[in-house]
Simulated assay, not measured.
Amino acid sequence: MERVEDALLPLINLVFLLLMFFIVAGQISDDPLPELPTSAPGHQEQQPYADLVVTEDGTWQIGSETVVSGRLLNRLPAPNAEQPLKIAAAASISMADLENLFRQLEQGGYTDILLLTEPAS
């Protein structure tokens, strides 16, 4: 039992020193954090460029043109190892629909795909 007590003493000392450090560090900085600048009301951020947009109803658009499944690979830019294909998908699209799209793109030779999302609010 004496060995166990001897082994716990350095651990107790370390916990005590850490506790004292955080007590002192908390007292040193008494100033509140500065407020972050907010965006102006009505300010809309520019949407990033996407090669392909998947809308809420599941249609595919390149630019403003709606594309059907059979013509998708012909309308997209050629696969490029340096530049990934950028896809913007609506939040309501199911993963199964995206998976079907990704399979079709993989068959077309696209290995790098960048899925653009909206930040959580």
Rank of each mutant, 00 (worst) to 15 (best):
residue 26 G to W: 11
residue 26 G to H: 05
residue 29 S to P: 02
residue 34 P to M: 14
residue 35 E to I: 06
residue 36 L to C: 00
residue 36 L to M: 13
residue 36 L to Q: 08
residue 37 P to Y: 01
residue 38 T to A: 08
residue 40 A to R: 14
residue 40 A to H: 11
residue 42 G to R: 11
residue 42 G to M: 01
residue 44 Q to N: 14
residue 44 Q to C: 11
residue 49 Y to F: 14
residue 50 A to W: 05
residue 51 D to W: 05
residue 51 D to F: 02
residue 54 V to R: 08
residue 55 T to D: 09
residue 56 E to I: 08
residue 57 D to Q: 10
residue 57 D to L: 07
residue 58 G to S: 11
residue 61 Q to Y: 03
residue 61 Q to P: 01
residue 64 S to M: 12
residue 64 S to F: 11
residue 67 V to M: 06
residue 68 V to L: 12
residue 70 G to N: 10
residue 70 G to D: 05
residue 70 G to C: 00
residue 70 G to M: 03
residue 71 R to K: 15
residue 74 N to V: 00
residue 74 N to P: 00
residue 75 R to P: 00
residue 75 R to K: 15
residue 75 R to E: 11
residue 76 L to G: 00
residue 77 P to K: 03
residue 78 A to D: 04
residue 79 P to G: 01
residue 80 N to E: 06
residue 80 N to W: 01
residue 81 A to Y: 06
residue 81 A to P: 04
residue 83 Q to S: 02
residue 86 K to G: 01
residue 89 A to H: 07
residue 91 A to L: 13
residue 91 A to G: 12
residue 92 S to K: 06
residue 93 I to L: 15
residue 94 S to M: 09
residue 94 S to N: 10
residue 95 M to N: 12
residue 96 A to G: 10
residue 96 A to W: 04
residue 97 D to S: 08
residue 102 F to T: 05
residue 103 R to C: 09
residue 104 Q to F: 01
residue 104 Q to L: 14
residue 106 E to F: 12
residue 107 Q to V: 08
residue 107 Q to N: 15
residue 108 G to L: 10
residue 109 G to V: 03
residue 110 Y to W: 12
residue 110 Y to S: 07
